[in-house]
Amino acid sequence: MADAKKLLLKIQRYNPEKDAAPYLVPYEIPLDDRTSLLDGLQYVKDNISPDLSFRSSCRMAICGSCGVMLNGEPRLACKSFLRNYANGATVEPLANFPVEKDLVVDFTRFLECLEALKPYITGNPRTPDDGPNTQTPTQLARYHKFSLCINCGLCYAACPQFGLNPSFLGPAAITLAHRYNLDSRDRGKKERVRIMNTENGVWACTFVGYCSKVCPKHADPAAALQQCKAAGALDFLASVLSRKKNRGAACGDKA
């Protein structure tokens, strides 16, 4: 063990009961080719600093709990291997969220947005007696990519617009709303679009594109947002045209 490779991991610490602001603490950890950042954090907690707080669960990039900033880049700790950071690494809590303690952030805003957009099948009148909904592979392909989102929040940490304007609904919530809007079994599009097309909805996105680069599941939130913008613009055009048509019809009636 004495010959084991070592790595310097600087971890941001913050104890709300004692500290006025977060600060970095260096920890030396042993590693081999298979050591993930999550393993490194767990080593620090088990052997050096038991009061270190971080979230984790599945260890296999499914649950989306262990998002952190690794050298300034949003990443899942379980999916990041420390062999790629030979010169050491700095670990901070996910950017753009308030820090509760050490690497734990407050996800409330993201969860509120997610809840508001109802990311589940809604409005479908079928009952269990009617049997399962049928869906063709083509219908599935329309939304499949967007359904890969695991709510890890990395895209929120990558989004400068969310950092500048926390009222922005954000990439993951809109991606999941879009995923259900595209689902042939869903009937809730009208309700979601009303929220998505507000000032803090899709139009607050300026297509920086970093959200798609950091997404650990390749759900491509930037593309989802652009598709929502295109759909919103077409809806607006259709509503203007139908208003004109109705006004024309009303004038015609008067005449």
Partner: peptide, 18 residues
């Protein structure tokens, strides 16, 4: 006592993608 990190005017300087 959640610690809020503000995005400054130079938010784009620290990241190659930005």
């Amino acid at each position: 006592k959640p610690y809020v990190r503000e995005s400054g005017r130079c938010w784009w300087k620290g990241n190659p993608c930005y």
